[in-house]
């Protein structure tokens, strides 16, 4: 009747995000994510709207309220004081990232326009493991990897393992490199 299907299923949990916050803390802070979401939403509304008629402002407030009320747990499944720090550090990370991205793109342009492209490229799949834990950190690193030199994140595991497709050897060798340190630094996970 009951057969255990131990097929190759990953042991991660899609429903529960892995906050380090316990249940009790969540209840205590449940108002803060809502407020922050609300403010963020309203700011977005103002940028989008560009119209400060009272009617539209009030509509904006209502809309922000609706979104924040129903979906604040999406934006901030768990909120800790660290978020502000993360935000600041992240802002500092972006310019570096952009420069990296531009570098990566010139590299790629060179490859693409090279007449003997197939001799230059040498696709690899490489695995490496990091000690990143939070989803945000994992995602940031993954997207950064995708955007920067010749590498695309294929999969990530929740334990911080990465599988990356690299277009050529130099790109592959550069991994995980400084980027990991920077990302870990942002999220305070560089143990």
């Amino acid at each position: 009747m009951t057969d255990a299907n131990t097929g190759a299923r990953s042991p991660e949990n899609p429903l529960k995000t892995k906050g380090k916050v316990s249940l009790g803390q969540e209840e205590k802070q449940s108002f803060a994510p809502f407020m922050i979401t609300f403010v963020l939403m309203f700011a977005t509304w103002l940028i989008l709207s560009g119209n400060f008629a009272p009617l539209l402002i009030s509509l904006g407030l209502i809309s922000s309220l609706i979104v924040a009320w129903f979906f604040h747990d999406l934006l901030f499944p768990s909120l800790t004081g660290k978020h502000l720090g993360i935000f600041i550090k992240f802002s500092a990370y972006i310019p570096w990232l952009i420069i990296e991205i531009i570098k990566a793109n010139f590299h790629l342009l060179y490859l693409v326009f090279h007449p003997r492209m197939k001799e230059l490229i040498d696709p690899h799949i490489i695995d490496f493991k990091t000690n990143l834990e939070s989803d945000l950190a994992v995602t940031t690193l993954a997207n950064s990897i995708t955007l920067t030199p010749g590498t695309i994140t294929v999969t990530t595991g929740s334990d911080g393992s990465y599988r990356v497709h690299a277009i050529d050897k130099p790109s592959a060798e550069a991994l995980p490199g400084t980027m990991l340190d920077k990302v870990a630094d942002i999220y305070g996970e560089n143990k």
Partner: peptide, 19 residues
Amino acid sequence: PSDTIIKTVCRILIPFIQI
């Protein structure tokens, strides 16, 4: 299993999309 990256990015984007 749902993909961590997609999940996280969408999680962040969805409220903005809604507003």
